[in-house]
């Protein structure tokens, strides 16, 4: 297909065909990383800037490496805090950086809608690397890629997304991507972390982890954040582990070929026991490997679209 999008803001607006195209391009780039010289000249002369307004290790590094392996010039800009202070708005900052001659901006920001806002105010391409609790499309894509690689398909699989659905951008991007590609999605978690009307996104809701383990082909375990500004969403970590933690003994009820995923970083002993996180059903490190290929594909496709 002919790629026409200038920005990657979320999976909600992508068609199934577009998503599959990104995954197919990523397959090609994954092979690059197996070579002894892990670099292609595809983005030679192009400039990518990473603008991270939230702490991030793996996403930031993954985008940096993706840009370098495509031979792009790379700038990185990090500033902690969820909002850019008054007088120096996100757009001001971005325009100053853009004026240096940038082709693609990769933005991580604490405010939902930040990437969209940026895309409407500057000329270069924008990749959303996570905007508040809204979307994290490259994480969604690498999860899709990993499921397709491990299970050979996506359509027809039952995928459980487990944990803090309400506050998770990973959950939203996964739901859009998985449902578009024909998977059956179940969101699983304590009722206080299931957002209003989520069923309308085309998913089922389950608060029984044992049922989810028995029924799902894939379990994508989200990172739990116990402390929240609006108060703890469940009484204690211990109670959360009892209800939703995946341990080896609990996993005995699962389908034998169940796939365990986690976007990281894992709270070991909370979402997953260490044995499960490091066990044979876990594909957590493969997700990280595939993240690089997917991000190369995204940068490559966006760079091919003329402003």
């Amino acid at each position: 297909m002919n790629w026409t999008r200038k920005h990657l803001l979320g999976l909600e607006e992508l068609s199934a065909e577009e998503i599959v195209h990104i995954l197919d391009i990523a397959s090609g780039f994954k092979e690059v990383s197996t070579r002894s010289i892990k670099k292609v000249p595809a983005l030679n002369g192009r400039t990518v800037v990473n603008m991270f307004f939230e702490n991030s290790t793996r996403t930031n590094l993954s985008f940096q490496l993706a840009a370098r392996r495509l031979s792009a010039d790379l700038l990185t800009f990090s500033k902690s805090g969820t909002s850019v202070s008054k007088g120096e708005t996100l757009i001001d900052t971005a325009k100053n950086i853009e004026a240096m001659g940038v082709d693609i901006m990769v933005l991580r920001h604490g405010a939902a809608g930040a990437a969209k806002h940026l895309s409407e105010n500057i000329d270069c391409s924008v990749v959303n690397a996570g905007d508040g609790q809204h979307e994290h499309p490259t994480q969604g894509l690498l999860d899709l890629y990993t499921i397709r690689e491990v299970r050979g398909k996506i359509a027809g699989l039952k995928v459980g997304i487990v944990g803090d659905i309400a506050h998770s951008r990973v959950a939203r991007s996964n739901i859009w991507g998985l449902t578009k590609l024909g998977a059956e999605v179940m969101v699983v978690g304590p009722s206080t972390l299931i957002p209003r009307d989520i069923e309308k996104m085309g998913v089922t809701v389950c608060t029984d982890m044992d049922q989810a383990i028995r029924e799902c082909d894939v379990l994508n375990m989200l990172r739990i954040q116990f402390e929240r500004q609006d108060g703890a969403p469940f009484p204690s970590i211990r109670e959360y582990i009892q209800l939703f933690g995946v341990t080896e003994s609990r996993l005995k009820q699962a389908k034998p070929d169940v796939t365990i995923m986690h976007p990281g970083p894992v709270n070991r002993g909370i979402e997953l026991s260490p044995e499960v996180a490091d066990g044979p059903r876990s594909v957590i490190l493969r997700q990280v490997t595939n993240g690089l290929a997917v991000r190369m594909a995204v940068l490559f496709l966006l760079a091919g679209v003329d402003g």
């Binding site: 809608g113 609790q133 809204h134 939203r172 957002p195 209003r196 009307d197 989520i198 996104m201 609006d230």
Partner: peptide
């Protein structure tokens, strides 16, 4: 209302913005 910045419902869920019922 808590941290809610918009109406709580399907739209707030999709946008990832905290809602007020």
């Amino acid at each position: 209302t808590g941290e809610g910045v918009m109406n709580e419902g399907y739209v707030s869920t999709v946008l990832g913005l905290p809602g007020a019922p």
